[in-house]
């Protein structure tokens, strides 16, 4: 019998061939829409480019501008103001609702679905809706206040109230999401631990303080991380509701980046803001984890 020239491990080759043809589109996509933008973002930091004339080398211009730019500083500061209100509020409301739902209840699925409803709604819609709720004259909230005998509050037009108002709204929109995370965490607390601490004579508060809360630490870290990242991505809310005002007090980093790219055609500077934002997010999340970690160890 003729000995055919045989390719070594031919079926292996066939598997490789199919694997490569199955993954080739994704690999190409990654190169074009993930790898290239990351590297080009770093390159843009050192460029001036208005998208019309050819890009020119900017050296450290963009970075220098960023460091001294009061508007950028304001936007970062605003984000921290937002987070200072949003984070505690988010944790408390999400945890509270999750604890309430974690009991034997009628219509559990209904309550859960209700809390989750705003999560599935577009941020643009929520912004428009809350614009109406916050409206000083015809808004629902001020109407309710009036019914209760209060005087109307200029929610979105008072510089000191506008950001807290937005923080409350974002909390309302996302709380359902974090309720689900906490509920999942509560499932993992073993029944035997609850019984043990009850036998030790702990009060409800002690049970919460010494069992539930520590056991939910991973979820709390997740909530803090995700809502921090989310806070730095604030865009559509100020864009639709306040335009960044009053007195730039609701101006967000992404809004500033968008404005630089879209209105001022400053691609280099906009990309620099993006890179800075990524670094700030990384640093803040890392710092938070360290703080929460030490708090746990103490």
């Amino acid at each position: 019998m003729m000995q055919r020239p045989r390719p070594e491990r031919s079926s292996m080759r066939a598997e490789q061939r199919s694997a490569w043809s199955l993954t080739a589109p994704y690999a190409a996509f990654l190169l074009a829409f993930a790898a290239y933008p990351v590297f080009f973002a770093l390159a843009l930091v050192f460029m001036h480019w208005d998208l019309v004339t050819p890009p020119s080398f900017a050296g450290g211009d963009n970075v220098r501008l960023l460091v001294t730019d009061a508007r950028f500083g304001r936007a970062v500061l605003n984000t921290f103001v937002f987070l200072a209100i949003h984070l505690p509020l988010q944790i408390v409301t999400a945890l509270g609702l999750a604890l309430a739902l974690n009991r034997r209840l009628a219509f559990r699925a209904f309550w859960r679905a209700t809390f989750f409803l705003p999560v599935v709604i577009s941020g643009a819609v929520v912004a428009i809706l809350w614009n109406a709720l916050y409206a000083t004259d015809v808004g629902l909230i001020n109407n309710l206040l009036a019914k209760l005998g209060g005087s109307p509050i200029p929610w979105l037009t008072d510089p000191s109230i506008a950001m807290p108002a937005i923080a409350v709204m974002v909390t309302w929109k996302n709380v359902g999401f974090y309720v689900i995370i906490y509920l999942a965490g509560l499932q993992y607390i073993p029944q035997s631990c609850r019984e043990a601490i009850e036998l030790d004579g702990a009060t409800a508060w002690q049970r919460f303080r010494h069992l539930t809360l520590p056991m939910l630490l991973p979820q709390t870290i997740l909530v803090v991380t995700l809502s921090t990242i989310n806070g730095f991505q604030l865009f559509i809310e100020p864009y639709v509701m306040t335009g960044g005002g009053p007195l730039r007090r609701t101006y967000s980093v992404v809004l500033y980046m968008y404005t630089n790219a879209f209105s001022y055609q400053k691609m280099g500077y906009a990309a620099t803001i993006g890179v800075a934002l990524a670094l700030i997010i990384g640093a803040v999340v890392a710092a938070q984890r360290r703080v929460i970690g030490t708090a746990e160890a103490a």
């Binding site: 019998m1 055919r4 045989r6 390719p7 031919s10 079926s11 066939a14």
Partner: peptide, 9 residues
């Protein structure tokens, strides 16, 4: 039989 199947699918 006499058929070499070593590298067949």
């Amino acid at each position: 039989d006499d058929r070499d199947i070593t590298h067949l699918a």
